[in-house]
Design a binder for these strands. Structure first.
Lengths: 291, 291
DNA sequence: TTTTCCCGATACCGCACGGGTATTGTCGCT
DNA sequence: AGCGACAATACCCGTGCGGTATCGGGAAAA
């Protein structure tokens, strides 16, 4: 007898219908039927009277329903008590200035729901530090992009986004479906300041040695609009008026990762990472397979 | 957070030692460590301070310990309440006069432990009915041996025992390690009464058409001692003074099964069957692999 | 200081279980 | 009798749990 079975049973008891209960539990009917039967076997008593015109509780079933409610209630209170005893936790999250994207939104929501007492302080880093202050200890966990030097840092890929070039809307290439890198050979690229992580620098601006130095997304867009520079960006979110994006056909995709220090294993960090991975996985699978 | 994790945590909290706690939980230390860490991740708080000189509880840990105790206590009470509401259950068990064997003993014990309120009434059947009254509805579940006509009856093999021949202790063959069937061709075999299940009859007494008719194990042994008849028995338990057993080399093993009517699915029957299968499985695996 | 020992953590593996899809069975109802 | 609704069954597959083997690190002993 575990809490999961009890949750299942409560759902069926309240809906008096396996199908509806399954829907409420975000699952399908057969595993639910099986779980309830296992619970009955485990307890050694019939809990439900199955008739085609609905399901009714036996005496044992009503007894279990009350008990299960109390137990589940107690479990929730236990969580709360533990959270209270642990004191107000804090998690500092570093982002790469694009935390407003879907996965970040859901992640923040679910994390707050799971750990209501935890204060999340978000630090938005500029483009010059792909670790967003992780190695410096300024943040506990980061949503960022690879590649960069990951010694001492562990990462888990959440998603891969195709890369695109960012142009003025009136650029001759602006209407194209895609471009290749060689077509941009004569353009002016931007650069990151000296001292930026070499891998990171190489990914974003190639071997450019001239061109404007940018530190933030904003500066980069300004350079595009005013200098005619080209920008580079993962095609994951929308861009402001006046600029256009074109898919870069021969460029490796940019991978969004969750990153944390490998010596950093406090539960909140682990919980955040676990949540991030799960949600990212769901994002892929949730696309309904329409027949 | 499920009840299993809580049980684990309570054990560790009380033992203040992962190894001892694991032993108490009848498991090994690594999965226990992992489970506790998962629990910490799930709750988002450190529960234990691991120091080489023992394990101590954090504030969150002590809070969870109290809550967990209450929850587990509540779960036990829930079981009791359900059992009470279900009314005193009854399970009638049919056996083939050799229920005193190891698996039967353990089975009865564990079943009583799991379902304290249930009355088990045992019906010992004689050798003439391999179903021990199952088909007639006299018992709910049976510990018996195949083969017999199983239409309408489901069985699950618990164990296979080699067959042996039962002789007077002063029989010339009595000292042998094993005999073959042809060496017994001139012996007098016993028979079952007319009307006995044909498969059953064929297994136990071949095509014998003469010889004494026996109905019980006792009668069979009497026939061996007084008539010089030979008996046939699975070599699973000990035999009384005065008779000897010799392995029958070319005889198929006798399979001990748990049997129930295929239309009979009350939870207590399912629970009994499940227990029987699990215990029989353990019996095999529990033989320690000495290196 | 170096060695040893204890104990928890990690790595990896195999199997069982929980979830899924597809199908069957079985009642009421027309 | 035929149909529709609903739970049960059959089967598949991936995850998770428990196992064994090994590592790492701190404390005690030499």
């Amino acid at each position: 007898m575990d809490l999961r079975s009890l949750r299942y049973f409560v759902a069926v008891a309240e809906e008096r219908h396996f199908g509806r209960a399954a829907a409420r539990l975000h699952m399908t009917q057969p595993p639910l039927s099986r779980a309830i039967k296992q619970l009955e076997t485990d307890l050694g008593a019939a809990l439900l009277d199955r008739s085609p015109s609905g399901v009714t509780l036996t005496a044992a079933g009503t007894a279990l329903y009350d008990e299960a409610r109390t137990l589940l209630e107690g479990a929730d209170q236990a969580r709360a008590k533990v959270a209270a005893a642990a004191g107000p936790g804090t998690l500092t999250l570093g982002t790469l200035a694009d935390s407003s994207e879907p996965v970040g939104i859901r992640l923040a929501g679910e994390f707050r729901e799971r750990h209501p007492g935890v204060r999340i302080s978000v630090r938005e880093a500029d483009l010059t530090d792909p670790t967003t202050g992780l190695r410096a200890g300024l943040v506990d966990v980061a949503l960022t992009r690879i590649p960069f030097d990951t010694t001492g840092i562990r990462t888990h890929v959440l998603r891969a986004d195709p890369m695109g070039v960012v142009l003025r809307a009136d650029d001759p290439l602006a209407g194209r479906d895609e471009v290749r890198r060689e077509e941009l050979a004569d353009r002016v690229w931007f650069r990151f300041p000296d001292g930026t992580d070499p891998q990171w620098q190489a990914f974003w601006s190639g071997s450019a040695v001239s061109g404007p130095v940018v530190r933030t997304v904003h500066e980069c867009l300004q350079a595009v609009l005013w200098n005619g520079t080209i920008g580079l960006a993962p095609l994951a979110h929308s861009f402001p008026e006046g600029v256009a994006t074109v898919l870069l056909a021969d460029y490796p995709p940019s991978k969004l990762v969750v990153a944390w220090r490998e010596d950093s294993t406090p539960p909140l960090v682990r919980s955040f990472v676990e949540l991030a991975v799960r949600i990212a996985g769901l994002d892929h699978r949730e696309t309904p397979a329409n027949p």
